[in-house]
Design a protein around this nucleic acid. Structure first.
Length: 825
RNA sequence: GCCGGGAUGGUGGAAUUGGUAGACGCGCCGGACUCAAAAUCCGGUGCCGCAAGGCGUGAGGGUUCAAGUCCCUCUCCCGGCACCA
């Protein structure tokens, strides 16, 4: 049989099918109640310029899912859009004098073209770019709703400020404490900012993590830690001034072991309580701490410094005097900004007490009777001692009881704390959604009336990179009339963080046509949500992936949607590396999607990123590996094309009589079974592909011209099933082969191949005979050979007999269909 | 420091509940085709050994008839958090 007549030339195949798919509106999804739904979503990209291999991998993973589920009979929603606001566009504007909108729009056109050349099956009717006023107007409405509900508020916070550029910098723009653009030192500047009260949902966000059993454990753990729930108590320590110091502790049972009260240097009471004698020293200490930059101060390795302020507090239960200190490691914004130091039962307090010679008082011991020595610091649970009424109680009991005592004395109460902070959304930037607020000298903060939404970004703006955000310098935008009093007022110059846009885009995709009077169409959202499979990088674990859960809960509370969790399953794909480093322009190890597609085709590109390893693991790029995938597709193409002539008129349902045919039938059914289960079971694409390769390798060994009719019939079935199974991975070539083998339509509209488990089961098995666990003999037996028979065969085997040398076996272990292990002494 | 995840041939990676380690791909070696090369097709390929055989899943112990898989100790690598009272 001649096998080199057909060349696999992807360029002649792929563009043609991409056009046909669009013409046929093949990827447009409409909800229908007759079929089960699947919402497959890959995290939408920032339109940075061109897509990179990480995108290719991300979208290929989703595309195979979408196509597979569709062939399996699901109604699949598979949309895509653009996270279009953000800093790089503005930097491009400053550096290259391009308007951010123009820059963004052009990038979207480029990237959309690149994605389409990969043949990804998106329903582009649902596309959204978040910089579209029709999108962000609803976000502005959400902000106003949050404000009304007290879930959006304004507060002073420190920001990175470059005095030279006169601008606020994002954390990632501060490189080693210097401005990334001008290399001048970055300072902290206190400014008013808007916050969203995500902490109100801390408990629900935490509780619901338990429901996300199809999310990777590491992400669930990261979110749990990020929310950081801790249970304890707040306790008041009276002072000589009128005001008590309130501390937070997770170990109220160690109250009797407190030998110092330590305040954050910024604590409000420091000034009131400081003794005349210590004033100067304390002031210097505070100045010193403030001079330290944030990163340095937050570092655990920074030396722990403290200073007594010359005043005492009184133990709430014993009245004992306890010195008040300030220390650099006490945080203002956690708990109450004050703590009781219990040196005997806290590692850090212990070190602090030893350094400054504070008394160390043991109030918890290891064993109830105290016969076992308690090594300090003893931070585990134990039994209270020297603790008045709670002495003798186990830690858990002691906690409960001491809280009851504190509550009855009105000096303390149980308290739950979270490490989760409210979400700061103000950005002193142009390229973002304006915050719909007006500052009126008379009426204060005034909401922009809903009828005036959206607050549009002005287009005629200058980008100098100096003097603050361009919006704050844009007088037409800034100077407005107060909606309340009509007097002169100023518009809020800040825009919203782009994480706000990406917190709800997935629900926008549920509609093709959007209602004019509401953000979302609830019916359509309820039809499609939650996302069934959400695919993206793990770097969003405690950012986007927390924010979008928060927004889903908000939207559910507003009655916009029913579901309280946005995504059932999360898949975090690994990163793409080359030469041991992340692909980046600066390292010069970038592989361009378009170039690859032009040279070897989209199908090869897709196949490689899926075959090179499991989707959740990092992937090392290999040009030779890519070639291998191209070779495989070429092999498939030639196999099918070369068989068309031979298979003319061959029927699919010939009775199977020959052994060779039976073997082939088994192989086909086994392959369908394995490919199907590998895709279904956690999307093991790499092994699914390898099973198809094995099938192809076997088919190549069959010489059709010499084969009986049952083999020819099965061969025809094999290439049909193969074409369909390959369709999600290499859709262009599959459609081409499907047509070439005399079929009509698209493989995506075909049903996924099915297998018969009786044929998928092997008729023969290789049985291993072991002596003391070492493999000695391998024999082929019919499937289902009884254990007893296998045992007899092993014992009768000449080789085994020889090894036993007449000794009687001590034990014989038979594992059905697998092995016989003969144990001798 | 704490919390996760890893370590398998020359290489990317496979291995249901403990039951034939190394599927599939790459690379390499050989063969066919060709004047020749490329492409293609076929075969071989964990290590040591001529062979019989032995040794092999980061290191060392253990449990078991049987361990990549379970338990203990350790080394190294990657990721997250980083004084959270």
């Amino acid at each position: 049989m001649t096998r080199t007549t057909f060349d696999y030339i992807p360029n002649q195949i792929e563009g043609k099918w991409q056009e046909r798919w669009v013409q046929a509106k093949l990827f447009e999804a409409e909800f229908d109640t007759k079929r089960p739904k699947k919402y497959v979503l890959a995290m939408f990209p920032y339109p940075s310029g061109r897509i990179h291999m990480g995108h290719v991998r991300n979208y290929s993973i989703g595309d195979v899912m979408a196509r597979f589920f569709r062939m399996r009979g699901y109604n699949v929603l598979h949309p895509m859009g653009w996270d279009a606001f953000g800093l790089p566009a503005e930097n491009a504007a400053i550096q290259n004098k391009v308007h951010p909108k123009k820059w963004t729009d052009e990038n979207i056109v480029t990237m959309k073209g690149q994605i389409n050349r990969l043949g990804v099956c998106y329903d582009w009717r649902r596309e959204v770019a978040t910089c579209d006023p029709e999108y962000y107007r609803w976000e502005q409405l959400m902000f106003l709703k949050l404000l009304k509900e007290g879930l959006a508020y304004r507060e002073k916070r420190q920001l990175n400020w470059c005095a030279s550029c006169e601008t606020v910098l994002a954390n990632e723009e501060v490189v080693d404490g210097l401005c990334w653009r001008c290399d001048n030192p970055v300072v902290l500047k206190e400014m008013d900012q808007w916050f969203l009260k995500i902490t109100k949902y801390a408990e629900e966000l935490l509780q619901d993590i338990d429901k996300l059993n199809q999310w990777p454990d590491r992400v669930r753990i990261m979110q749990r830690n990020w929310i950081g729930k801790s249970e304890g108590a707040e306790i008041d320590f009276q002072t000589e001034s009128k005001e008590a110091i309130r501390v937070y502790t997770t170990r109220p049972d160690t109250l009797f072991g407190a030998t110092a009260i330590i305040l954050a240097p910024e604590h409000k009471l420091v000034e009131k309580l400081v003794s005349e004698a210590s004033k100067k020293e304390v002031k210097a200490f505070i100045e010193n701490v403030k001079a330290m930059d944030r990163i340095e101060r937050a570092s655990e390795t920074t030396e722990k410094l403290g200073l007594p302020i010359g005043a005492d507090a009184f133990h709430p239960l014993t009245g004992e005097k306890i010195p008040i200190w300030i220390a650099n490691f006490v945080l203002t914004d956690y708990g109450t900004g004050a703590l009781m130091a219990v040196p005997a039962h806290d590692t850090r307090d212990h070190a602090f007490a030893r350094k400054y010679k504070l008394p160390i008082k043991t109030v918890v011991q290891k064993s109830k009777t105290g016969e076992e020595e308690t090594e300090l610091p003893f931070i585990e649970d134990g039994y209270s001692v020297n603790s008045g009424e709670i002495s003798g109680l186990a830690t858990a009991e002691a906690k409960k009881k001491i809280i009851a005592i504190l509550e009855s004395n009105k000096v303390g109460f149980a308290k739950t704390n979270y490490r989760l902070r409210d979400w700061g959304i103000s950005r002193q930037r142009y390229w973002g959604a304006p915050i719909p607020i007006i500052h009126c000298p008379k009426d204060g903060l005034v909401e922009v009336p809903e009828k005036d939404l959206p607050v549009r970004l002005p287009e005629n703006v200058e980008f100098k990179g100096k003097g603050g955000s361009p919006l704050s310098q844009h007088s037409d935008f800034i100077n407005v009339k107060c909606p309340k009093c009509g007097g002169p007022a100023k518009r809020e110059p800040d825009t919203m963080a782009t994480f706000v846009e990406s917190s709800w885009y997935y629900s926008w995709f549920c509609s093709v046509n959007h209602p004019e009077d509401r953000a979302l169409n609830r019916t359509e959202c309820d039809q499609w949500l939650p996302i069934d499979h959400y695919i993206g990088g793990v770097e969003h674990a405690t950012g986007h992936l927390l924010y979008f859960r928060f927004f889903q809960k908000l939207m559910a509370d507003w009655g916009w949607v029913s579901e309280r969790e946005p995504s059932k399953q999360l898949i975090c794909q690994g990163m793409v590396y080359k030469d041991g480093a992340k692909m980046s322009k600066s390292k010069g190890n970038v592989v361009d999607s378009d170039e690859l597609v032009a040279r070897l085709g989209a199908d090869t590109a897709r196949l490689f990123v899926l075959f090179a390893g499991p989707i959740e693991k990092d992937l090392e790029w290999s040009d030779q590996g890519v070639e291998g995938c191209f070779r495989f597709l070429g092999r498939v193409y030639r196999l099918v094309m070369n068989s068309i002539q031979e298979l003319q008129g061959v029927k699919l349902d010939e009775p199977v009589v020959n052994d060779e045919a039976k073997k082939l039938r088994h192989l086909i059914h086994k392959t369908v079974q394995n490919v199907t289960s590998d895709i279904e079971k956690d999307f093991h694409y790499n092994t699914a592909i390898s099973f198809m390769m094995e099938l192809v390798n076997s088919l190549y060994l069959i010489d059709l011209s010499k084969s009986p009719s049952d083999v020819r019939s099965l061969f025809k079935k094999a290439i049909g099933d193969l074409t369909l199974m390959l369709s999600p991975f290499a859709p262009h070539m599959s459609d081409e082969l499907w047509e070439a083998t005399g079929n009509k339509g698209f493989t995506l509209d075909c049903a996924w191949p099915v297998f018969d488990s009786t044929f998928a089961k092997a008729s023969e098995r290789e049985i291993v005979f072991q002596v003391n666990g070492k493999i000695k003999v391998k024999v082929i037996c019919p499937d289902g050979t009884p254990d007893k028979e296998l045992e007899n065969m092993a014992l009768a085997n000449s080789k085994i007999k020889e090894l036993l040398a007449g000794k009687p076996p001590k034990r014989v272990i038979v594992v059905s269909g697998k092995l016989v292990n003969v144990v001798v002494g």
